Lab assay of single mutants.
Amino acid sequence: MDSLVVLVLCLSCLLLLSLWRQSSGRGKLPPGPTPLPVIGNILQIGIKDISKSLTNLSKVYGPVFTLYFGLKPIVVLHGYEAVKEALIDLGEEFSGRGIFPLAERANRGFGIVFSNGKKWKEIRRFSLMTLRNFGMGKRSIEDRVQEEARCLVEELRKTKASPCDPTFILGCAPCNVICSIIFHKRFDYKDQQFLNLMEKLNENIKILSSPWIQICNNFSPIIDYFPGTHNKLLKNVAFMKSYILEKVKEHQESMDMNNPQDFIDCFLMKMEKEKHNQPSEFTIESLENTAVDLFGAGTETTSTTLRYALLLLLKHPEVTAKVQEEIERVIGRNRSPCMQDRSHMPYTDAVVHEVQRYIDLLPTSLPHAVTCDIKFRNYLIPKGTTILISLTSVLHDNKEFPNPEMFDPHHFLDEGGNFKKSKYFMPFSAGKRICVGEALAGMELFLFLTSILQNFNLKSLVDPKNLDTTPVVNGFASVPPFYQLCFIPV
């Protein structure tokens, strides 16, 4: 009986604490739906499609509103004006990374994606500088992407125009580009180590996009005490870190300090320079996690976009025909596509942009946080508050993009057929937390897609009208449904 009384008292205290925290903070924060004790607004949000729920709530509470995930307040920004004001106009104040408990377990605050403060700034600055020195957006990395595009075309030829699921092959190409940047090595598509790495990356994007992960991140005790797919994700990350550590040891034994070959060499050189400046942010643990982040951000996002792009091109054969006509006119058949071609191919450029806009790969991006107490639109948001960005509300804005739910390359073309930029184009987020590999991803999408369409016609196994382009999961990332196609050599 005594234990029951204690339990009831504990629960009562928890409920009172929950109510007090919510009521004391709500006077400062933007308005929002009334949260339930302990669980907050979790029942009012469709976990399978958070973005749709945010759109519905914005119609009631406006472009800036507050939700509670458990006891934790989260300020939501919906629509271009609110997102721009926060991420661009007040970029420094909104540059923090929001709480992501599962990532905390995986990387302990290291790396480039989930770190904060001085650690994040130094690692991000170093990573950007190193990638630029190796030619991100310049010639040397373009050579690597072109080489991988040629290998991709050869792998597709091996399908002999038979029906195939493109998931694996389209994942190999961007993964190999990242391998060449980090390890100075590309792998054969049949290499077992490479296959294991690909498998872990593919599993992780599916797990991260599941409703279960949303629950884990908002009720963090689940991570330590409950079984579930989150444990598989943590094991996959541990596998990748151990693999990278092996490569780091190989580099330490063979590195030429006067001739760095890749990202690992550059990081080890930085560690050597910083060894007298303790404590340094440049450690082996930081290198492991930064490399894992580059793999995660640079492989599955690009391969998922490529997979979605081919599905949309199957669905819209008239678009595919126009792209192939432009390829034939500008590039021809006797040389590989290059980035200089893009400025002469406005329709193809528009298609690449429209694919990214339409699929809305990361509907709410990753959570941000404010780095200080900030007054925002007459609300006071306390330091450390998590900020949720609705990228969907920007990419699918119906004023900027008429009929935003329709796939239409003319969203990025003017009346004369010239490519038209849009400030609403934010597939990689915006501001200080914009994806480090934005330029690389854009290069890969253009070169891989043009190389495929230069060499193959795409054949659907069903009537294009019957192809479903609805994402199968739409949590962290929008993942396309399973499909097969035939690559018919031109």
Results as ranks from 00 to 15, higher is better:
Gln192Gly: 10
Thr299Leu: 04
Leu362Val: 15
Leu71Arg: 13
Ile207Phe: 07
Phe183Lys: 01
Leu71Ser: 14
Ile207Glu: 05
Lys232Gln: 09
Leu128Gly: 13
Val436Gln: 07
Met129His: 12
Val351Ile: 03
Gly298Ile: 00
Ile42Phe: 10
Lys273Trp: 06
Pro471Arg: 06
Val352Cys: 13
Gly437His: 03
Pro404Glu: 08
Gln146Asp: 03
Cys151Glu: 09
Pro363Asn: 04
Pro367Ile: 08
Asn116Ser: 12
Cys164Lys: 03
Ser127Cys: 14
Gly137Gln: 09
Ile141His: 03
Val113Tyr: 02
Asp89Tyr: 08
His316Val: 04
His396Thr: 15
Phe219Ala: 09
Ile215Tyr: 12
Gly111Pro: 15
Ile223Asp: 06
Gln278Asn: 14
Leu90Met: 14
Gly91Val: 02
Leu467Arg: 01
Leu294Ser: 01
Gln484Phe: 02
Trp120Asn: 12
Phe183Pro: 00
His276Phe: 11
Tyr424Thr: 09
Cys175Phe: 14
Gly79Phe: 01
Leu314Glu: 00
Val75Met: 04
Thr34Glu: 07
Asn176Val: 00
Phe425Arg: 03
Leu413Val: 04
Asp2Tyr: 14
Ile327Gly: 02
Arg125Thr: 07
Ser127Tyr: 07
Ile47Asn: 14
Asn378Ile: 05
Ile327Leu: 07
Ala477Leu: 12
Gly79Gln: 05
Arg329Asp: 13
Glu326Leu: 01
Lys423Asn: 08
Thr470Tyr: 05
Leu77Thr: 03
Lys270Glu: 11
Arg150Met: 09
Glu415Ile: 06
Glu438Gln: 15
Leu90Val: 13
Leu7Ala: 13
Ser390Lys: 07
Lys121Ser: 13
Ile112Phe: 11
Asn474Val: 06
Phe263Ser: 03
Thr348Ala: 08
Phe476Pro: 05
Pro464Trp: 05
His411Tyr: 02
Ser115Cys: 09
Phe69Lys: 06
Tyr358Arg: 03
Thr470Pro: 03
Phe476Thr: 15
Glu199Arg: 11
Arg97Ser: 06
Ile331Glu: 02
Ser53Cys: 10
Ile213Pro: 08
Pro73Leu: 03
Arg124His: 08
Asn56Gln: 15
Gly27Met: 10
Gln192His: 11
Leu461Val: 15
Lys432Leu: 09
Lys383Leu: 04
His276Arg: 10
Ile389Met: 14
Leu362His: 02
Ala350Met: 01
Thr159Lys: 06
Val38Arg: 03
Leu413Tyr: 05
Thr55Met: 14
Ala369Pro: 00
Thr450Leu: 05
Asn378Trp: 02
Cys266Lys: 11
Ser343Arg: 14
Lys72Ala: 05
Ala161His: 04
Pro163Met: 05
Asp468Arg: 07
Met426Leu: 12
Val490Arg: 15
Asp143Ser: 14
Gly111Thr: 03
Pro471Met: 07
Ala477Asn: 08
Thr304Phe: 04
Leu19Gln: 15
Cys435Asp: 00
Thr470Glu: 12
Pro63Val: 05
Trp20Asn: 15
Glu288Phe: 08
Leu440Val: 05
Ser24Thr: 14
Glu285Pro: 06
Pro471Ala: 07
Leu197Ala: 03
Phe401Gln: 03
Ser422His: 09
Pro260Cys: 09
Val394Tyr: 03
Asp89His: 09
Val462Glu: 11
Leu9Thr: 11
Glu147Phe: 04
Ser336Leu: 12
Ile47Asp: 10
Leu9Gly: 13
Asn403Gln: 11
Asp191Thr: 02
Ser127Val: 12
Pro471Leu: 03
Ser162Cys: 15
Thr371Ala: 09
Arg26Lys: 13
Gly40Ala: 02
Glu203Lys: 07
Thr385Glu: 04
Asn403Phe: 07
Asp143Arg: 12
Pro367Ser: 15
Leu233Asn: 03
Ile42Val: 14
Leu201Val: 10
Pro33Ser: 02
Ala477Thr: 12
Arg342Val: 11
Ser53Ala: 11
Leu54Arg: 03
Asn218Ser: 15
Leu312Cys: 04
Lys432Thr: 06
Ile389Lys: 03
Asn466Leu: 15
Glu438Cys: 00
Val330Met: 10
Ile123Phe: 06
Met198Glu: 03
Ser303Gln: 06
Ala173Leu: 02
Cys175Pro: 02
Thr159Ile: 04
Lys383Thr: 06
Lys160Phe: 06
Thr469Cys: 11
Gln146Ile: 14
Lys241Ala: 04
Thr301Gly: 07
Asn258Gln: 09
Thr386Lys: 09
Leu485Ala: 07
Lys432Val: 06
Val330Tyr: 11
Val473Glu: 13
Ala103Met: 15
Leu29Gln: 04
Thr385Gly: 03
Arg144Met: 12
Ile141Arg: 00
Val370His: 00
His230Asn: 10
Arg132Ile: 04
Tyr358Asp: 01
Val436Asn: 06
Ser393Phe: 00
Asp224Gly: 11
Asp262Ala: 05
Gly46His: 10
Ile50Trp: 14
Trp120Phe: 07
Ala238Leu: 09
Asp414Asn: 06
Gly384Ser: 05
Phe446Gly: 01
His410Gly: 10
His411Ala: 02
Ile222Leu: 14
Ile374Pro: 02
Val113Asp: 01
Asn204Ala: 07
Thr385Asp: 02
Ser365Val: 12
Ile74Ser: 03
Ile284Trp: 09
Lys121Thr: 11
Leu461Pro: 13
Ser115Val: 14
Ser303Met: 04
Thr34Val: 12
Lys118Met: 12
Lys119Asn: 14
Asn334Thr: 14
Ser95Gly: 14
Arg433Asn: 00
Trp212Ile: 10
Leu90Tyr: 14
Phe94Asn: 05
Glu104Arg: 10
Val153Leu: 03
Lys270Pro: 04
Leu314Met: 10
Glu285Tyr: 04
Ala321Asn: 14
Ile452Val: 03
Pro35Arg: 10
Phe425Ile: 06
Phe126Asp: 06
Val479Arg: 15
Lys160Arg: 13
Ile42Pro: 05
Arg333Cys: 08
Ser115Asp: 04
Gln324Cys: 05
Val351Tyr: 05
Gly137Leu: 08
Ala441Ser: 08
Asp373Pro: 08
Glu203Trp: 04
Leu19Arg: 14
Lys247His: 09
Cys216Asp: 06
Phe482Leu: 12
Gln324Ile: 04
Ala161Ile: 02
Asp341Gln: 03
Pro166Phe: 00
Leu170Trp: 01
Arg97Thr: 01
Thr469Ala: 10
Val83Pro: 02
Asn457His: 15
Tyr189Thr: 02
Ile331Cys: 11
Leu362Asp: 01
Gly384Glu: 04
Phe487Gly: 00
Gly98Ile: 06
Tyr379Ile: 05
Gln214Met: 11
Pro63Met: 05
Asn41Ser: 07
Glu246Pro: 03
Pro480Thr: 04
Met426Arg: 13
Val330His: 12
Glu354Asn: 01
Ile223Phe: 15
Glu199Thr: 12
Ser12Thr: 13
Leu170Gln: 01
Asn56Met: 09
Lys52Ile: 09
Ile389Asp: 02
Val323Phe: 05
Ala439Cys: 08
Ile359Leu: 06
Val462Ser: 08
Phe401Pro: 01
Phe183Trp: 07
Tyr347Pro: 00
Phe263Leu: 12
Ser336Gly: 12
Glu400Cys: 09
Phe487Met: 01
Cys435Phe: 00
Val5Ser: 11
His230Trp: 15
Leu87Ser: 06
Glu142Tyr: 03
Tyr358Glu: 03
Cys266Leu: 12
Ala149Tyr: 01
Gly384Ala: 04
Pro427Phe: 03
Ser478His: 14
Glu400His: 11
Phe126Val: 10
Asn474Cys: 08
Lys399Phe: 08
Gly475Arg: 08
Lys190Gln: 11
Glu281Asp: 08
Glu354Ile: 00
Met339His: 07
Phe183Ala: 03
Phe168Cys: 04
Tyr80Glu: 11
Met129Leu: 12
Lys421Ser: 12
Phe69Leu: 15
Ser254Val: 13
Gln146Leu: 10
Leu380Thr: 14
Lys160Trp: 05
Phe476Leu: 15
His184Gly: 15
Arg377Ile: 02
Met129Asp: 06
Phe100Val: 15
Pro337Tyr: 01
Val352Trp: 02
Glu250Lys: 07
His316Gln: 07
Val352Asn: 03
Ser209Ala: 11
Thr66Met: 04
Gly27Arg: 14
Val323Ser: 07
Ala149Gln: 01
Arg108Glu: 11
Pro489Asn: 02
Met426Ala: 12
His230Pro: 12
Asp256Val: 08
Ser343Glu: 11
Gln454Asn: 03
Ile182Cys: 03
His396Gly: 09
Leu361Phe: 09
Asp360Phe: 03
Asp373Tyr: 02
